[in-house]
């Protein structure tokens, strides 16, 4: 949390700001503002919601002058707008912003609730929506191939480097890559909750069962799995022909982890 707060500046809006935003701002005389190159929307939203704040985060992407807003009250995400997109669609679009500025205006009421989910749940829903879109785009731009040998030759970085990057994502304790037969191909980090050495076989059995279920139900290939136990959480995702298991200490950051690990897991898939 100290890392997040280090990127956020507490400011008092200038007179011109107050004039621009109208009467509602008069009820509160301070806010937070910063740049998305220093933090990101998920971190910011989590920080504010866990601090039991309420209000609106206003976002502005200078490159195309696109504007967005996220209303929340404590741990509930009330509404989101990104350009013409609203609700989860708008929120998902905002999660993809890597550049731009933000300003949190406390206690600004939400006129119309379009989401109404816990912040973590909303992040998870938005990340899922982004994944589906990415898959659809990928399917549209890449004709299906029987083999993935061309991918195997495109590995740009060693898998160990990518695993180390995954460990840098806040909330990730350990990452284990397991073959479909349960062979623990590679691992990084450690968890005091899950024995990563023994995870391979158990995970392979579980994934097999889930894939069989998907096949029986005719609902396409398995894409994601979250398992929450009393004392452990495991997030799984296919990486190439293998499975990556990410082990966080608890479920509180699953949405953020899912969002932040997405690109790295795609990259990791090139190695397996």
């Amino acid at each position: 949390m100290s890392q997040q707060t280090a990127h956020i500046r507490i400011v008092t809006p200038s007179d011109s700001d107050l004039k621009k935003t109208g009467n509602s701002l008069k009820e509160s005389d301070n806010g937070l503002q910063g740049n998305l190159s220093l933090t990101n929307i998920t971190n910011l939203l989590q920080f504010l919601s866990l601090s039991s704040k309420k209000g609106v985060i206003e976002l502005n992407r200078q490159e195309d002058d696109k504007k967005g807003q996220i209303w929340f009250a404590g741990e509930e995400l009330l509404s989101a707008v990104s350009g013409t997109l609203t609700g989860i669609e708008g929120f998902a679009d905002l999660l993809g912003w890597e550049q731009g500025t933000f300003q949190f205006r406390p206690d600004i009421p939400c006129d119309k609730k379009t989401i109404g989910l816990k912040v973590q749940h909303a992040i998870l829903e938005a990340a899922t929506l982004l994944d589906h879109r990415a898959n659809e785009q990928s399917a549209a731009s890449n004709p299906p191939t029987e083999e993935r040998s061309h991918l195997m030759d495109l590995t740009a970085r060693d898998s160990s480097e990518v695993l180390n990057n995954l460990l840098e994502v806040p909330g990730v304790d350990a990452v284990v890559v397991v073959g479909r037969d349960g062979f623990v191909i590679e691992s990084a980090g450690s968890s005091n909750r899950v024995n990563t050495e023994e995870l391979g076989a158990s995970l392979a059995h579980a994934i097999n069962g889930i894939e069989e279920m998907g096949s029986e139900l005719n609902v396409n290939a398995f894409q994601d799995m979250f398992i929450e136990y009393g004392r452990a959480v495991i997030m799984c995702r296919p990486v190439g022909d293998a499975i990556a298991a990410i082990i966080p200490p608890d479920a509180s950051k699953l949405g953020v982890i899912r969002h932040k690990t997405k690109k790295l897991l795609v990259e990791l898939g090139e190695s397996f």
Binding site: E147, G179, D181
Partner: peptide, 15 residues
């Protein structure tokens, strides 16, 4: 040891 990558009839990587 185990299989890391396998393209049938073309390539296999073992770790």
């Amino acid at each position: 040891s185990g299989i890391v990558q396998l393209k049938p009839a073309e390539k296999m990587i073992i770790r």
